[in-house]
Structure formats: C-alpha cells, structure tokens
Deep mutational scan, measured.
Amino acid sequence: NQASVVANQLIPINTALTLVMMRSEVVTPVGIPAEDIPRLVGMQVNRAVPLGTTLMPDMVKGYA
C-alpha cells in the first residue's frame, strides 16, 4: 500500500510546509504520495490542516 502525507501537527492556513510538519502513513482515502514530501517543502497550505489529517492535492497551493 502506498503511504500518503499526513499532518504531524496543526498546520495553520497559509503556512509554508517544513519536513517536521509532515509524516508518511498508509491511510484511506489516499492523499498526496509520501514520495512528494521533498517537493512539498516550502509550499503553502490554503486551509488549516488539523493534526493527523491526510494532505490532499487541493490543500496545497501550486501542488495540483
């Protein structure tokens, strides 16, 4: 099963992502693939992302 990117903490709206904010986990539904974590660093979320939430492509500005 493919691992997805999951929020390791509450990520406030418009926050630029850092490695410490994300972890990989096998979840359903599948979100952004864990191998894209390096690409996500520095990108901003367009909404608040609660701890444990799977990051979906539409949550990250410029990802989709």
Results as ranks from 00 to 15, higher is better:
Asn1Cys: 14
Asn1Ser: 15
Asn1Ile: 15
Gln2His: 13
Gln2Glu: 15
Gln2Val: 12
Ser4Met: 04
Ser4Lys: 02
Ser4Trp: 07
Ser4Leu: 01
Val5Ala: 06
Val5Thr: 14
Val5Cys: 13
Val6Arg: 03
Val6Met: 15
Ala7Arg: 01
Ala7Thr: 08
Ala7Cys: 03
Ala7Tyr: 00
Asn8Phe: 15
Asn8His: 07
Asn8Val: 12
Asn8Pro: 03
Asn8Glu: 12
Gln9Asp: 14
Gln9His: 12
Gln9Lys: 05
Gln9Trp: 07
Gln9Asn: 08
Leu10Gln: 09
Leu10Glu: 09
Leu10Val: 04
Pro12Arg: 03
Pro12Trp: 05
Ile13Tyr: 04
Asn14Cys: 06
Asn14Arg: 03
Asn14Leu: 06
Asn14Ile: 03
Ala16Arg: 03
Ala16Phe: 13
Ala16Asp: 05
Leu17Thr: 01
Leu17Glu: 01
Leu17Asn: 00
Leu19Asp: 05
Leu19His: 13
Leu19Cys: 10
Val20Asp: 12
Val20Arg: 04
Met21Trp: 03
Met21Cys: 02
Met22Glu: 01
Arg23His: 12
Arg23Gln: 12
Ser24Leu: 10
Ser24Glu: 14
Ser24Trp: 11
Ser24Thr: 08
Glu25Gly: 14
Glu25Lys: 02
Glu25Trp: 02
Val26Thr: 11
Val26Asp: 15
Val26Tyr: 08
Val27Asn: 11
Thr28Glu: 15
Thr28Arg: 01
Thr28Ser: 07
Thr28Asn: 06
Thr28Gly: 06
Thr28Pro: 03
Val30Phe: 09
Val30Leu: 07
Val30Pro: 13
Val30Asn: 07
Ile32Trp: 02
Ile32His: 01
Ile32Tyr: 02
Pro33Tyr: 12
Pro33Val: 15
Ala34Ile: 14
Glu35Met: 07
Asp36Asn: 05
Asp36Cys: 14
Ile37Ser: 14
Ile37Gln: 14
Ile37Cys: 03
Ile37Pro: 01
Pro38Ala: 13
Pro38Leu: 13
Arg39Phe: 10
Arg39Ile: 07
Leu40Asn: 01
Leu40Glu: 00
Val41Ser: 13
Val41Asn: 04
Gly42Thr: 10
Gly42Arg: 05
Gly42Cys: 06
Gln44Glu: 09
Gln44Lys: 05
Val45Ala: 15
Val45Tyr: 00
Val45Cys: 03
Val45Phe: 01
Asn46Tyr: 04
Arg47Val: 14
Ala48Asn: 13
Ala48Ser: 07
Val49Thr: 07
Val49Phe: 02
Val49Gly: 01
Pro50Ala: 15
Pro50Glu: 15
Leu51Met: 15
Leu51His: 09
Gly52Asn: 11
Gly52Glu: 12
Thr53Tyr: 12
Thr53Arg: 09
Thr53Ile: 13
Thr53Gln: 14
Thr54Arg: 04
Thr54Gly: 05
Leu55Gly: 00
Leu55Arg: 00
Leu55Lys: 01
Leu55Ala: 01
Leu55Thr: 01
Leu55Phe: 07
Met56Tyr: 11
Met56Arg: 11
Pro57Gln: 11
Pro57His: 12
Asp58Lys: 04
Asp58Leu: 06
Met59Asn: 08
Met59Ile: 09
Val60Cys: 02
Val60Tyr: 01
Val60Pro: 01
Lys61Ala: 05
Gly62Ser: 09
Tyr63Phe: 14
Tyr63Ala: 14
Tyr63Pro: 05
Tyr63Leu: 12
Ala64Cys: 15
